[in-house]
């Protein structure tokens, strides 16, 4: 049973009178528990595809099923609820809420989105912060920690609501190599522990070697799919 099923997925933007075909009839399936990366040059459609899978945008044509839900048909509110229940996000710029502490940033999805009781919230947040090595820093604000630490907090925040899929757009772009590998390592460990699917886009060839399935996008089309650790030819 696939977690994501995309059929003839297309996305066209209108820039004035010019039509930009960001994605052209993509079809693919992704199994639960995968650790997948989309690579490709700038403008190849990686971010657009992640936005569609993340219910942040809608396809122009084609269908997209995520966790058995036809997400291309969801209303704005339904999409928000779906994201809150099933998806986690990791951003290139970390996007932590600056007025909240590390603990509160991770707690946010459980508190504001899922209304989890306080005790359970605390247990879950501390456990995750412990796993990403940020428990000691939990009372600090985002401007008091480093970029790598911020991204570890972002990983914890993405996982705290027990999502089925975590989407990460260039999660290591703003990190040095050592920290980037550390973050990828944490993400893989989390995948192994929680069985959650990680799907991310990257430019970084060193990180590509860490993924299990690698999709290459060119001009809005899937040009190749490589499976196996480091992306062996399918």
């Amino acid at each position: 049973m696939s977690l994501i099923i995309a059929k003839n997925l297309s996305k066209t933007y209108h820039s004035g009178e010019i039509e930009v075909h960001a994605l052209k009839s993509l079809s693919f399936e992704i199994k639960p528990g995968s650790f997948i990366s989309f690579i490709g040059p700038s403008g190849s459609g990686k971010t657009t595809l992640l936005n569609l899978i993340g219910c942040l945008d809608k396809p122009t044509s084609g269908s997209l099923k995520v966790a058995n839900v036809l997400t291309s048909d969801l209303t704005r509110r339904e999409a928000a609820a779906f994201r809150g229940e099933n998806l986690g996000f990791i951003f290139q710029d970390f996007n932590l809420i600056p007025v909240l502490t590390v603990f509160e940033n991770v707690e946010y999805p459980l508190l504001i989105v899922q209304n989890v009781p306080a005790r359970k919230r605390r247990e879950r947040v501390i456990s995750l912060l412990d796993k990403v090595g940020m428990k000691d820093q939990m009372n600090k604000f985002p401007d008091q920690i480093s970029g790598g630490q911020k991204q570890r907090v972002a990983v914890a925040r993405a996982l705290v609501s027990n999502p089925r899929l975590v989407l990460a757009d260039e999660p290591t772009a703003n990190l040095d190599s050592k920290t980037a590998f550390m973050v990828i390592d944490i993400m893989k460990k989390m995948r192994d522990e929680f069985g959650v699917t990680f799907l991310f886009s990257t430019h970084d060839p060193k990180i590509v070697g860490e993924v299990e399935t690698l999709f290459t996008l060119e001009d809005g089309m899937l040009s190749s799919r490589l499976d196996g650790e480091g992306g062996n030819n399918d």
Partner: peptide, 8 residues
């Protein structure tokens, strides 16, 4: 960000 996370 908060909307993406699922805030209504």
């Amino acid at each position: 960000t908060i909307a993406a996370i699922g805030t209504m």
